[in-house]
Design a binder for these strands. Structure first.
Lengths: 342, 342
DNA sequence: CTGTTAGCGCTTTCAA
DNA sequence: TTGAAAGCGCTAACAG
């Protein structure tokens, strides 16, 4: 296993018979005598030379590393990974590489990740914040590191943010259910510590109030964090004496858990059900699941574009982008209430 | 937007009233007088000092960057992202960060990615190779960069590899179908340029031969790359005069496409169907989809552990790890053939 | 144990 | 235009 010693610029300069600086100029596109340019390029090729980015960024005036840091909830989560891919696609056109990590919704892990990313002097950060106060994020912001928060509001004021219209999406679904005749509508949401869960709940509460529909304590379940918990919550909700005729679930896994519960109860063709966030095969279930869809790739794309504009020097005030959601009627959300509601 | 100038080790040394090297020693855990250690740590805290990894790795004898490069097919693909997460989890315990990128199955993109990763002097590489010859991978291997290929065989000899037992998995499923009475079994596989597709086909062909079952040209569809193509292929296969009584689909999306086709034809409760690779909600379809499951997280974990051992100096011969697959009987694969097969 | 010194590979003055 | 020289922030010899 022969460990080659990598050629340096000095080696290339020596072989080409030019000064070190000339090699640097050629490789950076600074005008140089075409004759020398040729010799340098030849020498570089001959030696299999490749620039060392660490040394480059260390010496450069702007200290760019051409790397951006991405803090996700979990790189393996479909939402996160779609967002990741969109960021990669925008970055790749500029020669940017992405250092990604998973916070697992833990503020401490978010801090740690941001720490190592800053140590690596990433050019900018895209973060799905846990929502907890984060001095690491704040200090990065103070240091002037461009940051974009995505999917959730920033815990640090003055940071660019890209989110979906969570409230509007849920409110729209509630209005649609109301138009079908539903008056008793249940709601299941994730941990209230999550910005998205709070927003979606507010959208629900606002729409219900606007429509003059009452909610009962047992019909609104918050802080439901797993598929199993959602299954249990919905089982409880519809096992009660008076149950809703429709239910809105405010997150992917909760939607699946709720559907399992409805199937268990034999109510999946009876109770109207709308989920927030689309998921693969939603259209292949029976009945197909109607959803309020957001576009994770678009969230990532917009966040990345915003970050790039900051890297290019845009120093305008912090932007807050809200992307629309889209209701996809597949069947489960179009079930009418029973003819004679009790 | 006040852009702070980051404190350097020199600043810390000055504030602590010690030499530069002492600061370095303290920060690297080299024994130092406890009194000085305290002063250094205080000064560092006061200045909000953080080490610069670029400078560190530039100067270190081993040039470690504590970063590993990961080349996936597509970071957004569930298989890839589960693998990614497993690699992250192993790496995080050692303070390693992951630079991931998507090749999109394009050899040229794979080359480019490997190029920029090498330029960044990653400590090691984990690659899901497209399979095409790759001089970049080869030259990295020659340079002594630790590399592990995962999910597919390495195009470069002598590289550690972790894959699933693709042949065995498919062969097992075929034997199970045979035991149920099936004799005419169809097969749908991805592009033959993919190592996994070839392996799975060989497992199929070998099992069929071993069991003395004949296959017909129209019953074995290879180079089927998308869900829609699989849907069309299966529609064609079962629209023919004599059709198989069972079908094996050799990849995620192909499985979904095939199921759609069977539903279209009204045959989903008649034709036995087994897919390779598990997918979310497979158990919620009607009938639930039986699969040959592999464990992407385990593939990633093993690959990462292998890489770490190489980083720790293990210079034994290249290892080839083959992980078992697991058959998950859910229903679709347990449908018996018609009583009087025509 | 501690401080001083010499670079890692590169970009960027500064003269020529 | 080009080359020589001065560092970027850090670690690793080397003396004390």
């Amino acid at each position: 296993m022969n460990v080659h010693v990598r050629a340096t610029m000095k080696d290339v300069a020596a072989l080409a018979g030019v000064g070190l600086a000339t090699v640097s100029r050629v490789l950076n596109g600074v005008p140089v005598d075409p004759h020398l340019t040729g010799r340098v390029l030849d020498a570089a090729r001959q030696l299999g030379y490749r620039k060392d980015t660490a040394a480059t960024s260390l010496r450069r005036a702007d200290r760019r590393t051409n790397t951006i840091g991405l803090v996700l909830q979990d790189v393996a989560n479909p939402f996160s990974s779609a967002l990741h891919r969109a960021v990669e696609d925008v970055g790749v056109q500029r020669g940017l590489l992405v250092l990604a990590g998973s916070s697992d919704e833990e503020p401490e892990r978010e801090r740690e990740l941001l720490g190592v990313l800053r140590t690596r002097r990433v050019d900018g950060l895209i973060v799905v914040p846990t929502g907890a106060p984060d001095d690491e994020l704040e200090s990065a912001h103070r240091d002037g590191t461009p940051i974009v928060c995505v999917d959730r509001a920033s815990p640090v004021p003055g940071v660019d943010t890209v989110t979906a219209d969570n409230r509007g999406g849920v409110a729209g679904a509630v209005r649609a259910l109301h138009a079908l005749g539903h008056r008793r509508i249940g709601f299941v949401a994730d941990h209230s510590s999550l910005w998205t869960a709070r927003e979606r709940h507010e959208g629900f509460a606002a729409a219900m109030a606007e429509l003059g529909c009452r909610t009962r304590a047992g019909w609104v379940r918050r802080d439901v964090h797993t598929e199993d918990a959602a299954r249990a919550a919905v089982t409880g909700m519809f096992g009660a004496a008076t149950a809703p005729t429709a239910v809105v679930t405010a997150q992917n896994w909760l939607t699946v858990g709720a559907r399992r519960a409805l199937v268990d109860l034999g109510l999946h063709h009876t109770v109207a059900h709308v989920g927030f966030d689309d998921f693969p095969l939603a259209d292949m279930l029976d009945p197909p699941v109607s959803v309020i869809a957001q576009d994770p790739a678009e969230l990532g794309r917009r966040a990345a574009l915003l970050l790039l504009s900051r890297l290019d020097g845009d120093s305008g005030p912090a932007e807050t982008v809200t992307l629309p959601t889209r209701y996809i009627a597949r069947g489960s959300g179009e079930l009418p209430p029973p003819v004679r509601p009790s």
